[in-house]
Measured scan of single mutants.
Amino acid sequence: MEVRTIKVFTTVDNINLHTQVVDMSMTYGQQFGPTYLDGADVTKIKPHNSHEGKTFYVLPNDDTLRVEAFEYYHTTDPSFLGRYMSALNHTKKWKYPQVNGLTSIKWADNNCYLATALLTLQQIELKFNPPALQDAYYRARAGEAANFCALILAYCNKTVGELGDVRETMSYLFQHANLDSCKRVLNVVCKTCGQQQTTLKGVEAVMYMGTLSYEQFKKGVQIPCTCGKQATKYLVQQESPFVMMSAPPAQYELKHGTFTCASEYTGNYQCGHYKHITSKETLYCIDGALLTKSSEYKGPITDVFYKENSYTTTIK
């Protein structure tokens, strides 16, 4: 009895394709271990004539594949690729409408935090270190965002349907971005203890939790000093293409032309909904596939993004 075979390709990165001759009487799992086709788990399936010449994702289970996976995804987590594939199996079914010149995501599976993050990423200057993220990001900007969303979920250790947080998501993504040249110098002034300067680099240099107003941050924000008295913390120097200011959701007025974009969060910790506000020729609110415009805006804002380049204080 002759062994019926077909020729397929296996890959971990969709760049390096490895030619395989597979036995049609055995499952993919018996031949390769966990195997995925377009995100779908085909591990328990036997090869079919229609699979001839198709590319299958496999887990990096030998040295060659491990090197290829690390170079593309910059992670050695053995569960990463499987999590990416199972997320992709959902995100490829989502709709990605162009809204006001940006790629958004039609609401499904509690994905409003991903839509808000995706919209924000198209408006701030950011370059990702893992080629996987950078490639998928370019495709997302062009309207094909399924891979990018699935990668975000995998890097953030999230599953489809789980509630997510924009600030946490951005923080994970910033860790995989090139923020080497970003720098922030802060000064804390206390009447009792004097003053202390701190220099922050990388992710810490672009994120701040405690106030939404970048102007206020430049002037000074009140913080408790270690001595128990009130101290003032203010920005001395900022070198970065953008800054992200966050605070627990509270009524906040966004003035046209003073910011790049913002995240609105309605609801409580267990259950809520994100919308995205962007400042173009007027203010726009993007909620999944829905767009509304207004000249002014007041609502429960939790993150505001500002364009920056270089700032030095005039406070002496």
Rank of each mutant, 00 (worst) to 15 (best):
T5E: 15
K7I: 10
K7P: 10
T11P: 02
V12R: 08
D13V: 11
D13F: 00
I15M: 12
H18P: 11
H18F: 00
T19S: 12
T19R: 11
V21K: 13
M24I: 13
S25K: 07
M26D: 09
T27W: 15
G29T: 01
Q30L: 12
Q31G: 11
G33R: 00
P34N: 08
P34W: 13
P34R: 12
L37N: 12
T43C: 13
K46Y: 12
K46Q: 14
K46P: 10
P47A: 11
H51S: 04
K54F: 13
T55A: 11
F56W: 02
Y57F: 13
V58Q: 03
L59C: 00
P60E: 01
N61T: 11
T64D: 15
A69V: 05
E71D: 10
E71L: 03
Y72G: 07
Y72P: 03
Y73D: 04
Y73F: 12
T76N: 07
P78K: 08
S79V: 14
S79N: 14
R83G: 00
M85F: 00
M85P: 00
S86T: 12
A87D: 09
A87Q: 13
L88Y: 13
N89P: 09
H90L: 09
T91M: 05
T91N: 04
W94T: 07
K95G: 08
Q98W: 13
V99E: 13
V99M: 11
V99K: 14
T103L: 04
S104F: 15
I105Y: 03
I105M: 06
A108Y: 06
A108I: 03
D109P: 01
N111D: 10
N111A: 03
N111E: 03
C112D: 02
C112H: 02
L118A: 06
L118R: 04
L119N: 06
T120K: 01
I124G: 08
L126S: 00
F128S: 04
F128L: 05
N129V: 07
P130I: 06
P131T: 05
P131D: 00
Q134Y: 01
D135W: 07
D135F: 05
Y137H: 05
Y138A: 14
Y138R: 14
A142N: 14
A145G: 05
A146F: 03
A146Q: 10
L151N: 01
I152V: 06
A154R: 08
A154N: 05
Y155T: 08
K158A: 12
K158G: 03
T159S: 11
G161I: 04
E162I: 06
D165G: 14
D165P: 02
V166P: 04
V166L: 07
R167E: 02
T169R: 03
S171I: 08
Y172Q: 13
Q175S: 08
Q175V: 05
H176M: 10
N178P: 05
L179H: 05
K183Y: 11
L186Q: 12
C190H: 02
K191F: 12
K191C: 13
T192V: 09
T192A: 14
G194N: 00
G194Q: 01
Q197K: 04
L200K: 08
L200V: 10
L200I: 08
L200T: 11
G202M: 06
G202D: 03
V203T: 09
V203F: 12
E204N: 08
E204G: 09
A205I: 01
A205V: 01
M207Y: 09
M209W: 15
G210A: 05
G210L: 00
T211K: 01
Y214L: 12
Y214V: 09
Q216C: 08
K218A: 01
K219H: 03
K219R: 13
K219A: 13
V221D: 02
V221L: 12
C225A: 02
C225L: 04
T226N: 10
C227A: 03
C227T: 02
K229F: 08
Q230C: 01
V236I: 09
V236Y: 06
Q237E: 11
S240T: 01
P241A: 09
F242W: 09
M244D: 01
A247N: 04
A247Y: 05
A250G: 13
A250T: 14
A250Q: 15
Q251T: 14
Y252R: 00
Y252N: 02
G257R: 05
T258L: 05
T258E: 12
T260C: 08
C261K: 04
Y265E: 01
T266K: 11
G267V: 15
Q270S: 15
Q270N: 15
Q270R: 08
C271D: 14
I277C: 04
T278Y: 13
E281H: 02
T282M: 09
T282C: 15
L283M: 10
L283D: 01
Y284I: 13
Y284N: 03
Y284G: 02
C285W: 11
I286T: 01
A289K: 05
A289G: 09
L290F: 12
T292Y: 09
K293L: 07
S295R: 13
E296L: 09
Y297G: 01
K298N: 13
G299K: 00
T302M: 04
D303M: 05
K307Q: 11
K307I: 09
N309S: 14
Y311T: 08
Y311D: 06
Y311G: 00
T312L: 13
T313H: 14
I315V: 15
